[in-house]
Design a protein around this nucleic acid. Sequence first.
DNA 1: CACGGCATGTAACAAGTTACATGATTGG
DNA 2: CCAATCATGTAACTTGTTACATGCCGTG
Lengths: 176, 176
Amino acid sequence: MALEHALLVALREQPASGLELSRRFSRSIGYFWSATHQQIYRVLGRMESDGWVGATTVEQAGRPAKKVYEVTPVGAEVLASWLAEPTGAEPLRSELAVKMRGASFGERAAVLDVVRAELVEHVARLARYEQLTARDYPDPTTLTGLALDQYLVLRGGVLTEQTWVTWLTEYLEAHA
Amino acid sequence: MALEHALLVALREQPASGLELSRRFSRSIGYFWSATHQQIYRVLGRMESDGWVGATTVEQAGRPAKKVYEVTPVGAEVLASWLAEPTGAEPLRSELAVKMRGASFGERAAVLDVVRAELVEHVARLARYEQLTARDYPDPTTLTGLALDQYLVLRGGVLTEQTWVTWLTEYLEAHA
DNA sequence: CACGGCATGTAACAAGTTACATGATTGG
DNA sequence: CCAATCATGTAACTTGTTACATGCCGTG
């Protein structure tokens, strides 16, 4: 389980309300960890009762009040010790790969369509990530600390999407 | 949900018992879908009661009998129609990326060790996949049908592991 | 007859998904 | 006052993980 820890990282970068977190999880954090708002609220609640985060209600002009969470010293320690734990092997899990491998047992043309559709999505994501890189990190060699880490994780997103594009393109060409 | 479908693909390739399936899931099928034997048994049970697979008890010389499952016509239809369904976006999910991004909030040296350890694992996996490729698919251009699909999915495993190695190496170099 | 490998499972728990519920506030 | 957006949540369900339980069989 690691949504807790992803939330701790996000909140250490910048305290936020549940909705703000869920927006960040569909943007920058989303390219390496996904979560819906329901899950975020539930886990935030648990983290609050465990004393990992504290909440402050913040009034807003012309909008409902929000509960802004920030990491407590206890939460900071939990995060630091989790960061030092060895991470397991990260097994793969690709539904598309199952379909690719099973194509002989259905209509191959339909599977090729599914692959083509997913290729389009990955091309779009790659373009977005490359654009973000150009906009936010024009000169990566000068970065340090948090900014460097953020860049390097985005870099992983770019590499991952490039791999998808390469792979699916090869698959389609081999079946052309 | 797709373990059902991964099992259908595996059983269409070759009928098998629960334990045999779980061995295949830690080998060839494991490079794109993972599952433990407990989960496999549970899902097989449900698939049997839904009529997607049928079981035959097979006696073995010098070993306990095993229950060999094979896909029924109903199961084959379920699989074929699932294969034609569009697959969703496949969100990323990498615990290591969370640690990489959060390194500023703990001991950076510890995170670098975690990354190094995982790099070693990915290097080993890559070597294994490349060896499998050389052994089983010495001449990929001649393949067709199921063998071609199996090759192409293994190819995805190779590309993925190469990406991991590239990424983690870049990360370590940037923090050297 | 103890041990290790084969073979199948149960139970309890943790995590993630889907669908729905509630209420505040602004703009048209 | 109605629709859209902001904001926070509940409930029910599905999936996946971890730890344990049971029994067969051959080898030493």
